[in-house]
């Protein structure tokens, strides 16, 4: 194995790594907010909202991320919107991951006994107040491990940007490979970069899971 080529391509790897981090952070923030909104929609007392929330979650959970990204990248221009590879990929990540986060949050909220909602409502709190003050604080503890795990998936899935010229780590690794032909080494370097991001997240998920399971 000869890793001496890495030096001359370090700019490529680092730029890819930077874009992977950007896409992940943006995807993380977006999918978290969207996921919360969807989760609340799914358990809202209004049927129409529930139906929309459920349809969204079930649709995006059951189709490939690549397809979602292609819809943004190649499908949207025919509707007049034009996004580059990075934007399409990141938006696709957000939309796709939010469905999983919504599902995790919904499961968490529904694990809080229904009696609590009734009790809170009967003390005069509105639905939104009851949700915010009573249910969500309890649910958060339950949903943190699955959500960190979704973030881990999101970071891994950000490699999808490589397929739509999104200039991420995967894209550059692929390019470096086509110049150097040192395939094994190139992909090992890319793998190391990914592990820098994913191993701490995986570790955090495990620790949180154990900690919250013990106290819970």
């Amino acid at each position: 194995m000869d890793f001496s080529f890495v030096g001359s391509y370090s700019g490529d790897f680092l730029e890819g790594f930077k874009n992977t981090i950007y896409a992940s952070l943006l995807g993380l923030a977006g999918s978290f907010v969207l996921g919360l909104v969807l989760a609340v929609m799914r358990i809202a007392p209004w049927k129409a909202l529930r139906a929309i929330g459920t349809a969204y979650v079930e649709f995006f959970r059951n189709i490939p991320l690549l397809l979602v990204v292609y819809i943004f990248y190649l499908g949207l221009p025919s509707l007049g919107a034009d996004l580059d590879g990075f934007a399409s990929g990141t938006l696709g990540l957000m939309i796709y991951t939010s469905a999983f986060i919504a599902e995790a949050v919904r499961a968490g909220i529904q694990s809080v006994p229904a009696g609590q909602m009734e009790a809170a409502r009967s003390t005069g709190l509105s639905y939104v107040q009851a949700m915010r003050l009573v249910i969500l604080p309890q649910a958060v503890r339950i949903v943190i491990p699955p959500i960190t795990n979704q973030f881990l998936n999101l970071v891994k899935n950000s490699s999808i940007l490589g397929v739509v010229a999104g200039f991420d780590l995967m894209y550059f690794a692929d390019n470096v490979n086509s110049y150097t032909f040192q395939t094994m080494e190139t992909y090992m370097v890319a793998a190391a970069f990914y592990l820098i991001l994913t191993v701490p997240l995986a570790y955090a998920t495990n620790v949180l899971e154990r900690k919250l399971a013990r106290t819970g």
Binding site: L152, K156, M170, M184, A190, A191, L195, T198, A202
Partner: peptide, 16 residues
């Protein structure tokens, strides 16, 4: 393996 993107693993298996 669990902490790597599947895309990377596919490239790895096919090309490395």
């Amino acid at each position: 393996i669990r902490n790597l993107p599947l895309l990377l693993i596919i490239f790895f298996v096919k090309f490395a």
